[in-house]
Structure formats: structure tokens, C-alpha cells
Design a protein around this nucleic acid. Structure first.
Lengths: 236, 236
DNA sequence: CGGACACTTCGATCAAGGCCGTATCGTGGT
DNA sequence: ACCACGATACGGCCTTGATCGAAGTGTCCG
């Protein structure tokens, strides 16, 4: 199988409205059932089942069985990145869109974006981290400063990369409608894990949906001077 | 138009073997004519014409008229990134492939990857830059060290980002079959421009195809200790 | 001006695949 | 044991769109 042929396969895999809608639904890292996915895609469960089989075959999704439910989620960070690229491209080529963003106000402020925090809160946190000289962040890449290295190490974040060669772990993730970057990459994932360890967020009923706790409100206020309730609008 | 619907559109746009082959052909930054693209895609010119119209409409390609020829090339760096993501994903999901890489040995050693240098030479250069502590490079991101800042400034490279907020300009680009990163982002583009200014490469008959010059051989030998003739295999 | 060439448009054909109705399988709860 | 429910498999309908032949437009060259 040649490379361009593989590209075409992948494109075709993501090129159906139903499949795209289902992938989009689990883009934030949640795991959903076939019926839920069918509903968000606006198709019948049996149609969705076929699509899901193709997505799994194409390594875009994985499934875990739990009783009589089967939970579907993204197969790998690579898929998430691929979706990111597509949304970025879509935002770049279709700016006449005025009204963007999720209708659900809870998602405007914060949500998870695969393995890291996204939403207006995430953008604000990234801004503060840059302001304090802990990281630098641009569209092309990011870096952890020396001060940042110490700071994050003190928080107990593992940034060694597991012995792998990867030293820089700070990747920008463009909020494709917001046009502002937030923090992704290993540092982004570690930060979200840290928030969860500190009980700033709770995972809600649906797997991996985030709920801000009282401690979280206090934490963000104290650590970053952010009033989460007033972070304004965010977009999806 | 909702975001998932746009994703589906883009997927469908890249999801045809003919269109994928044509995009792949111009992925290195070249501009090709409709007939050339038809040939690499293995379709007739009239079919290719239809595909190209769709690609242009979808902002994936642009066209410039020159006499009776029309040269097609990638529309933007975002498209290149999107293709990169897809190839990366494809390499991740289909590793059983043993025999990879371009048949053309000239492309193994070096070629342009949209706006920066790619190929085995590019990987080797990136290695040397890391060795000398001028940059750091991982899978998630890259950074220019302080020594690097001075070094590249001395070469006359413009890394200011044009007043925009983007400070870090050092992005890794995974050679999806080689599984080794080379240098992309603004620094990568600036470096390629520098090579061209120094006449280390010449643009060949076809627009933006690279030919290594004598000066280039000497230059890479002298600057990086690299014997370009013996850089071994690279992959596409 | 006429022919060669690059490219596009139009029209008809045809295969791929999305969709759903029905049926089947398996699990959990009563 | 029974039923409810989630999920998948099969079969047939139907739309989408890829393809190429033929014809039309524009450009360069002799």
C-alpha cells in the first residue's frame, strides 16, 4: 500500500458526515456507546454500528466492553492530532462563520481535548504560564523555560519523557475557532492529570467529562488569579 | 456549517485516490501542471481537471497561470500540516510495511517538504543541531536554545515571527516512514532559504525541486561534517 | 491564419457505499 | 425462564460521485 493510497483511505474514513460526527463526539477523550454516537450523528444504531466497525478497522477508534455496553473512544493521540489538523484547516478556510462554539455554556469555559484541558480556561491558563515566564508558546511550537522546569518539577509533574529522546514536551494546540493556543503535548496532559489529582476537576457521569469542583474554583483563583465563572466565552 | 460537517468535507476532499495522489505529488512544495498531475494520479486529464477544481474550491490547492500552462501547488502550510498528520497516522497504523521510501535515490538523501528541507540529510542536520546544543527537538515540540538564538541570528535568519506573538519557531516534522524527526516550522523554512541564498541548492527544472551544488556538498561537509553522498537511505 | 497543445466543460455510464427495515445474537434484570 | 435492551449482520433501495469520450476555449508557434 503506497503512501498516497493510505492517505486516501484515511481521508475516506473521515470523509463521511456520520463518522466525522462520531469522531468529533469522542474528540474530547470521552468514551461513548454506539447508541449515543448514533444519536449525535443523527443516524440509526445499525448504520452507526457499520461506521464504527470501519473506524475500528481503520485504527481510528477502539472499543472496550463493559457488560452489555460497548464504549467507543479515540484509538490514539495520533487520531486526535489528525482531527486537530483538520479543524485547524477548516477554521482557516472558512472564517466567514460568525457564530461558533458549543451551545452548552459549560463547555465554553472548559472541557477536555483528548488528554489535556481545552476551552477558555485552558487558554487563560496558558496565557498566565507565558506571562510568568514558565513556558513560551507560539503557533509553531512551545518550550518550557528553565524556571518552568523547576516550577513543574515542584508540582510533581513527570516531564522526563520516559527515557525517550523527547526533551521538549510543550506543544501548542490551536483552539480552531478561538484562534488562540492552549497547552497540549505531554505537559498539557500532565497538567490535566495534576488538576485531577488535586481534585480541581471530577470526572462526571459520562467518562472523562469534567466537572469543576469548589477546590478547583479556589485553586485556579489562587494559582492563576482566574475567576472561572467569568472567563467569558469559549468556542468548540 | 458545523465543525464536524466541515471535517467530513475535508476528509472527503482528501479521500479520493486521485486527489490524494495529486496532493502528494505537490507536497514537497513543487508546482505542477494539470497533465503532470493527471499522469502521477493515473487518470485522464479531464478527470484530473475536475478533481483540481474541487481541490481549489476546497482551498487545498492554488493555481497560477503561466501562458498556456496552469501550475498547481499546495494552498497553504496548513494543508501541508494536514497531509503530514495523515501520513504520520498512516505510518503509525500500518507498520507491517517493510519496503518504504521513494525509489528515486536522489529523493532519499534530500528533498523539500513544503517549505523546509526533508530527507535523510535533513534528519542528519537536525541531529547535528541538537548535538551542538543549538536546538532541542522532541516529538511534541522543539525549542531554540540561547546559544541557538545567537547562532541563527549570526546566519542572518529572521526568527522574529514578523511581530506576531510566536516566539518559538522550531517545530519537529516526523519523517513518517523514517520515524525520525527533522526540522520544520519557521526555523526550518528559514534554514532552507539560507541554503538557497548560499547556493547550496539550486532549484531544478521543475519548480522547487532541489539539486545539490558543489558548494552545497562543501558547505554541509564543513558546517556539519556531513558527507552527503554517504548519508545512506532516507524514506518518503 | 491554421495547427498543435493545455486545459476545461458537458453528458452518459457505472460502481461504491450510505442508509434503513428486519432479523439475530448476547447480556442483564425481573 | 422470560423479556428488555444494546449491538451487529443481512438484504435491498438509492444517492453520490468517479470516470472517460467528445467537444469547446484559449494560447503559443510557425
Amino acid at each position: 500500500m503506497s503512501t498516497p493510497a493510505r492517505v486516501a483511505e484515511i481521508g475516506a474514513l473521515l470523509g463521511d458526515p456520520g463518522r466525522a460526527a462520531m469522531l468529533y463526539a469522542v474528540f474530547d477523550g470521552r468514551a461513548l456507546t454506539a447508541c449515543e454516537l448514533a444519536e449525535v450523528a443523527g443516524i440509526t444504531p445499525q448504520t452507526a454500528s457499520g461506521h464504527l466497525a470501519r473506524l475500528i478497522d481503520g485504527k481510528a477508534m477502539t472499543v472496550t466492553k463493559q457488560g452489555r455496553h460497548r464504549y467507543f473512544r479515540l484509538a490514539s493521540p495520533e487520531v486526535a492530532r489528525l482531527l486537530e489538523s483538520m479543524m485547524q484547516f477548516s477554521a482557516m478556510t472558512a472564517p466567514p462563520e460568525v457564530r461558533t462554539g458549543p451551545r452548552d455554556p459549560a463547555l465554553k469555559a472548559f472541557r477536555s481535548c483528548y488528554d489535556h484541558l481545552a476551552g477558555n480556561l485552558a487558554v487563560a491558563v496558558a496565557d498566565r504560564l507565558v506571562e510568568r515566564g514558565l513556558i513560551e508558546l507560539g503557533e509553531d511550537g512551545g518550550l518550557i523555560t528553565d524556571r518552568g522546569q523547576d516550577f513543574f518539577a515542584e508540582l510533581g509533574l513527570d516531564l522526563t519523557g520516559g527515557g525517550k529522546s523527547s526533551r521538549p514536551l510543550c506543544r501548542p494546540c490551536l483552539d480552531w475557532s478561538e484562534r488562540r493556543v492552549h497547552l497540549a503535548g505531554r505537559l498539557g496532559a500532565e497538567l490535566l492529570a495534576y488538576y485531577l489529582r488535586q481534585h480541581w476537576f471530577r470526572r462526571a457521569e459520562r467518562p472523562r467529562t469534567l466537572t469543576l469542583t469548589r477546590e478547583g474554583e479556589r485553586g485556579f483563583k489562587q494559582a492563576f488569579g482566574l475567576d472561572v465563572r467569568s472567563t467569558g466565552e469559549c468556542s468548540r
